[in-house]
């Protein structure tokens, strides 16, 4: 039973169209653009070093809103299909559940990527206007790393959406997990060294099995104008991210294929 790319692209198109026709998507998009523009255009005390702080705040806003868009959109896709019953005429067509899930996840990822691209273009223009220089490679790397990281988050949210019935609980759990990984992920290994067995092994297993999405956070490089990462290392990071997205999507497909719809 092969997976049809035609079906996946059709489903991705529909979920993108849904996101673009929802008012909440535009509210978040426009809010982020306005806040980023406002932050970027303020001139604090004519102090040039303030540019770094402004960049940091703008990037934080972009990270928060991109996460909100990605998680809220992905968490509701499958539950709303089941709740509204739209899954039934859909599955009466020659389409598999795997294609439905993958198509919808792809649609969310592309739509989120478009929003993220807009955020990064505005950020790059603002940063360039302030500092009269722009590291194109680093900005491209930051955007790509961020987008791949959102791919991991979206696939996690889809996995949650086929396990938890309510989109709201899934959204909350995903947000908590992502923030916890961002904040604690890198420290788990060191923390485990101060623990006794069996907690030490448990924490180390968690450390080595969770996706370290903090690795995709290039904000410090952008804020402090560090040089871009070597491209070979950067591609390894992308492969790491895509690998985790595929693992979560695969598990989500397995669960969704066994889920009772009626």
């Amino acid at each position: 039973m092969g997976v049809k790319l035609n079906n996946i692209s059709a489903l991705a198109g529909v979920s993108m169209r849904e996101m673009y026709r929802r008012k909440d998507f535009y509210v978040v998009l426009i809010l982020t653009v306005i806040l980023t523009l406002a932050m970027g255009s303020i001139n604090f005390f004519n102090e040039p070093s303030v540019a770094g702080y402004i960049k940091e705040i703008c990037l934080l806003l972009i990270w928060i809103f991109a996460l909100v868009i990605a998680i809220t959109a992905s968490a509701r896709q499958i539950p709303s299909e089941i709740e509204n019953g739209t899954i039934f005429p859909l599955l009466a067509k020659p389409v598999t559940r795997t294609e439905v899930l993958v198509g919808k996840a792809l649609g969310c990822w592309i739509a989120t990527g478009v929003a993220l691209f807009i955020f990064y273009v505005i950020f790059a223009l603002l940063a360039a206007s302030r500092e009269h220089s722009l590291d194109f490679s680093l900005n491209v790397q930051s955007f790509l790393a961020h987008w791949i990281m959102l791919g991991i988050v979206i696939s996690m949210a889809f996995l949650g959406s086929v396990i938890f019935a309510a989109p709201s609980s899934n959204t909350t759990i995903c947000l908590v997990v992502v923030v916890a990984i961002m904040v604690l992920g890198r420290h788990l290994n060191r923390l485990s060294l101060n623990m006794s067995e069996p907690m030490r092994t448990i924490v180390q297993v968690i450390y080595f099995s969770i996706p370290h999405i903090e690795l995709f956070d290039f904000r410090n490089l952008l804020v402090h104008n560090y040089p871009a990462v070597a491209w070979n290392k950067f591609f390894l990071l992308l492969i790491y991210g895509v690998g985790y997205s595929l693992i979560f999507t695969l598990i989500a497909c397995l669960v969704f294929n066994r889920k009772r719809l009626r």
């Binding site: 059709a10 169209r17 849904e18 019953g85 005429p89 009466a92 067509k93 020659p94």
Partner: peptide, 30 residues
């Protein structure tokens, strides 16, 4: 399901699409 048409009891369709877009989407799946 390639040669099947199915009409469910209740109206389960993507309300954010136009009728034309919905039919185009289903035609693509076929």
């Amino acid at each position: 399901r390639h040669r099947i048409g199915y009409l469910p009891e209740l109206t389960y369709y993507y309300k954010f699409l136009t009728a034309e877009e919905l039919l185009r989407f289903y035609a693509k799946l076929f």
